[in-house]
Computed example of a mutant assay.
Amino acid sequence: MSALDWSTPEGLEAIRDHLAAGIEGWRPPVAHAVGLSPASSSPEWVFPHVNAPGGRHGLPAVVLATILRHDGSTGTLPLGRADLEAAVASLAPAQACTAVEHPNLAAWRSVLRELEGNPAREAVAVFVADLADPVSSEADASLRVAIDGAVPEL
């Protein structure tokens, strides 16, 4: 890839495609999110931003998958602070494109702040390749509940 153009939607798409080409078996998930373990006795995982089916931008999923060495299949992966910091740093240049919003960056940064303020909490990355796939974890179940119309079967 010659020059990376972070300033346009087309440039972000090209970057997404370039990164995706480097992931063996990559398959864009229909939904994905970074979640936080419950802060109280509630069993529900917290997702500051959910990338639901039909979303337009796949760059955040590819960035996470690249860092976590994941192929986009349905799964819940532990997300350490260093990996999340790397994901934020990798996606941050996308802010140069002011034609689109960047809710994943905001969500990931809020998760980092929460992890710093409450080290007992854990972060995960949840990928759902197909809503018909079996639920991979409690976090996955919480994500699917957050997606309008999806009712997970445990």
Results as ranks from 00 to 15, higher is better:
residue 30 V to K: 03
residue 57 H to N: 15
residue 107 A to H: 05
residue 93 P to A: 14
residue 79 L to Y: 09
residue 2 S to M: 03
residue 33 A to L: 06
residue 25 G to M: 08
residue 93 P to Y: 14
residue 154 L to T: 14
residue 141 A to V: 04
residue 67 I to D: 13
residue 13 E to S: 13
residue 146 A to W: 00
residue 47 F to C: 08
residue 16 R to C: 13
residue 103 P to G: 07
residue 64 L to T: 12
residue 48 P to G: 08
residue 2 S to K: 08
residue 11 G to N: 07
residue 61 A to N: 14
residue 96 A to E: 15
residue 88 V to W: 05
residue 7 S to P: 00
residue 88 V to D: 11
residue 63 V to W: 11
residue 27 R to V: 09
residue 31 A to H: 04
residue 141 A to N: 02
residue 12 L to H: 08
residue 149 G to N: 04
residue 154 L to M: 09
residue 60 P to G: 11
residue 51 N to S: 13
residue 45 W to S: 04
residue 29 P to T: 01
residue 39 A to E: 08
residue 75 G to V: 06
residue 129 A to H: 12
residue 90 S to W: 10
residue 67 I to T: 06
residue 119 P to F: 09
residue 91 L to R: 09
residue 51 N to G: 03
residue 7 S to C: 05
residue 63 V to D: 12
residue 120 A to V: 13
residue 75 G to Q: 06
residue 144 R to F: 02
residue 63 V to I: 15
residue 33 A to R: 09
residue 86 A to W: 05
residue 80 G to Q: 06
residue 66 T to E: 13
residue 123 A to Q: 04
residue 53 P to M: 01
residue 96 A to L: 15
residue 54 G to D: 06
residue 127 F to W: 03
residue 90 S to G: 12
residue 136 S to M: 07
residue 23 I to W: 01
residue 28 P to F: 07
residue 83 D to H: 15
residue 151 V to F: 05
residue 70 H to F: 15
residue 18 H to N: 04
residue 3 A to W: 02
residue 67 I to V: 15
residue 119 P to H: 12
residue 17 D to L: 08
residue 112 L to I: 07
residue 17 D to G: 00
residue 26 W to S: 07
residue 100 V to D: 07
residue 8 T to M: 02
residue 142 S to I: 02
residue 74 T to Q: 10
residue 30 V to Q: 08
residue 88 V to F: 10
residue 150 A to L: 08
residue 90 S to V: 11
residue 131 L to V: 09
residue 150 A to Q: 12
residue 35 G to P: 01
residue 116 E to L: 11
residue 71 D to M: 04
residue 70 H to Q: 15
residue 152 P to W: 03
residue 89 A to Y: 09
residue 118 N to I: 10
residue 148 D to S: 01
residue 148 D to V: 02
residue 150 A to E: 13
residue 147 I to T: 01
residue 127 F to V: 15
residue 102 H to S: 09
residue 18 H to P: 00
residue 42 S to W: 00
residue 38 P to D: 00
residue 113 R to V: 11
residue 49 H to V: 12
residue 144 R to Y: 00
residue 21 A to R: 01
residue 138 E to C: 03
residue 147 I to H: 00
residue 98 T to P: 10
residue 42 S to F: 00
residue 125 A to P: 07
residue 115 L to H: 04
residue 34 V to L: 13
residue 81 R to I: 11
residue 68 L to S: 12
residue 77 L to C: 05
residue 147 I to Q: 00
residue 142 S to P: 08
residue 113 R to I: 07
residue 71 D to P: 03
residue 1 M to L: 03
residue 37 S to N: 06
residue 51 N to D: 11
residue 127 F to D: 14
residue 17 D to S: 01
residue 149 G to L: 00
residue 4 L to K: 05
residue 27 R to L: 12
residue 118 N to C: 12
residue 57 H to Q: 14
residue 154 L to W: 14
residue 117 G to A: 14
residue 19 L to T: 04
residue 110 S to H: 04
residue 59 L to M: 10
residue 71 D to R: 01
residue 55 G to N: 10
residue 89 A to L: 15
residue 143 L to I: 01
residue 94 A to P: 10
residue 48 P to K: 01
residue 145 V to E: 10
residue 82 A to M: 11
residue 100 V to I: 15
residue 92 A to V: 14
residue 100 V to M: 11
residue 135 V to P: 02
residue 59 L to C: 13
residue 23 I to C: 03
residue 148 D to F: 01
residue 13 E to H: 10
residue 66 T to Y: 07
residue 114 E to V: 12
residue 120 A to K: 11
residue 117 G to N: 13
residue 1 M to W: 01
residue 121 R to F: 05
residue 20 A to I: 03
residue 143 L to A: 04
residue 7 S to V: 00
residue 119 P to D: 15
